[in-house]
Design a protein around this nucleic acid. Structure first.
Lengths: 303, 303, 303
DNA sequence: ATAGGTTTTGTCAAGCTTTTGTACAT
DNA sequence: ATGTACAAAAGCTTGACAAAACCTAT
């Protein structure tokens, strides 16, 4: 795949770390590079040339003499595989983390795209995003991460997850209503849970952060979901809503999730506890319901 | 719809803020206006003429020269053209509102899709989303809308806006850092503002809800934004951060926006007040930038 | 998509941060810009010109020299910010088409990503991809497009659609088996149909191009799908398989789709005809399965 | 690596014209 | 109200210049 030559020698030097003089020397002595020329005679290199310089560097690093390195670089057109392909995912994960820490939106999105292209949604959530969010929470508590960094990262991830969530209310599957109790602002785990449910055929209605239980109650009557899931990162918000939770759980299956949900709390509220990670619990919920076929096919909203 | 001409030049001047002399000059030079005449020879303008003057002002505000502004004001005769499709737009807008009120995610997204296919970003924001959010806030205060409905709608819209926002940190333009002060959870207007800035060539870093000012401060040093914008729906959060705001504003241009930002607050903080709607203010901020002062020198090699 | 030129040089400078002198120099030296002129000789730039300046800036930022940056900007290898006045979707759609026609894979993917971020999957399919594929077919028949171009575009789109399709076999919804009859190679419409079904909660098994009906038959016995859909762009392949089709349709609901499916053919085969576009038919099939009326929620539709 | 020459590119200046808001006289 | 005048702001062209980046050859 040849690209038009458009890099001057200084930029090639900057990109590879090889001095301009040396670049010219390699060209003359070994013919590794054959740049075009500008009208006035300046060398113009292509991206491929940069690759070839990199290849030279790799070979030199392996102890070969320059002449041999050059021959190899020319002959085999070795692509530099900077790390094993098995590790591609963890590389992208690292890239994502670094980009988010540096406020580099574009890099973060690119890494996200690559991950999305390599992994299934389940794998992306369980192996990358949820661990990352977990670590982020820890780092935040330890003060290793500023609030601004945490916010920036959350907003990027929220945007991407909501993008994946688009349309999750459609279809014929069972219907889950998701919300965080009053005072609870961490909704990312809940979105992840919704996505996992979605990919198993559920329909999702998402209310998000800081939703009063009576308001949930009110709409349960109308929407008739098959399940209501409330998530909180700490016990406080759930505890504060305990009476209303009990009332809610009397009319519809309620599950509590997130680090704030405990067995005793669930028991007192008459709710189910989802203690594992979102994906596992989504699987469990789905298996519990209908191993194979959807229970009912409630009408889908028209259009 | 043409109305009978009945406005004398002084009234037109008063309504538009354009001096009498200038109105006559525009008429003669560009033919933007063609007023009738009273018996005694006084100019008599119609409402349409006033609209046309307003159109000129809009274009001038966008940095066009008078001659070009006039041509556009005459050519596009925007009212007529868009009122044909205005029906369609308002239908889609109504559909969007109804779907959001009914938790009909799919219908809401479909309406949003149609709006995206008909409108420019500016029009979508100014004519549909911002008014809708405004109304929603009012309805919420009056209790005409439940918390769950408000949350559901916000999350859908947030998801779509963040989708449009993807990549807004890239590029070469001036750089704005956006955040809501501690305690402030309404970030949609700020996202809209970010989008408007983006479409005018700015780069955006978005921190969102509930961001402590010292954390903003810290990253301002690193990111060196050209402008920091803080938005709040009520005065409280901004007031509470006043001392830190002042300190922040000492080192970087700070603007305050949203219903919670007042002139006196801005003055005390040493910040600029953005009092208008997000799109207008984005325009203003862009025009306000000094001409011919390219901040970024060519060839910034760092990522 | 050219807009009328109406920006004077100062405004362009203000918007891009490039000095007026430099703008004139770039015009003269590299021809990056070709502004119109006012009556008195002032340069008048269009919005597209502004974009081209931005493209230059991006390339400069990557370390290219001005001359080369200009060449790239002219070849429009990079589209930067969408700032123009066109609506949001048609811009990216045009970009996608151009990129596909020019074998510019990176650009095409970038445009696809933007569309995916802005639109719903349904909208992406109905408003962008399916019309595009249709036009492409026409252009191919007229000879306006080379085989290579058609292949390139198809493969890119197939890759992206299959990426979206990942995991479409999982879950609890009804199960559809999709295939093209022997001799039929056009599977893109069928993939689109599968995606539309998927987003409505179905599980998909996709057999693809050129599948012998007995093989479908066999899968049906094992997988017990709720529906089998066969698609063909011309009548031939379906006709040739008529006897086997009849046999297949005796054991499982079969639908025929694509331009090659006719009412009479469907009748003879004992199959249903899906005559509309994939998305509409997916909706119909879904509604057909779940005849329960949509539960309409009250709430406050009015504001 | 150094020396001596060339190309590239951003910026500036001088002198003149166009555009446009405002002012003034009739 | 009309017509003319005017000055500031913004543009135009040509030509030149200097710093940075490159070239070849020693």
């Amino acid at each position: 795949m040849s690209t038009a030559p458009h890099l001057r020698i200084g930029e090639v030097s900057r990109r590879t770390g090889v001095s301009v003089d040396l670049l010219r020397a390699w060209e003359k002595r070994y013919g590794v590079l054959s740049p075009g020329r500008s009208e006035g005679g300046f060398r113009l290199y292509s991206e491929d040339d940069v690759e070839r310089v990199r290849a030279m560097q790799v070979h030199l690093g392996q102890g070969l003499a320059a002449a041999q390195a050059a021959r190899l670089a020319l002959e085999s057109e070795v692509r530099v595989v900077s790390s094993g392909s098995a590790d591609l995912v963890s590389r992208d994960r690292a890239e994502l983390e670094e980009a988010l820490a540096l406020f580099a939106e574009v890099r973060a999105n690119a890494a996200f795209d690559r991950l999305l292209a390599t992994l299934t949604l389940d794998a992306l959530l369980t192996d990358v995003l949820l661990p990352y969010l977990h670590d982020l929470g820890d780092a935040w508590e330890r003060g290793d991460v500023t609030v601004a960094q945490e916010h920036f990262a959350s907003n990027i991830i929220r945007g991407r997850l909501l993008g994946l969530a688009r349309g999750w209310g459609a279809g014929v599957g069972p219907h889950a209503l998701l919300a965080c109790p009053p005072g609870e602002l961490h909704d990312l785990g809940l979105i992840a849970f919704g996505l996992a449910l979605r990919s198993r055929g559920w329909r999702i209605t998402f209310l998000g952060q800081d939703t009063p239980i009576p308001s949930v109650q009110e709409h349960v009557r109308v929407l008739q979901p098959d399940s209501v899931v409330l998530a909180a990162a700490e016990a406080g918000p759930l505890n504060d809503s305990l009476p209303e939770l009990r009332e809610l759980a009397a009319g519809v299956p309620v599950s509590l999730a997130g680090a704030g949900a405990t067995a005793s709390l669930a028991r007192e509220a008459g709710a189910t506890l989802l203690s594992g990670d979102p994906i596992a619990e989504a699987q469990r919920l789905t298996n519990g319901r209908a191993p194979g076929s959807p229970k009912t096919a409630p009408g889908s909203p028209k259009t």
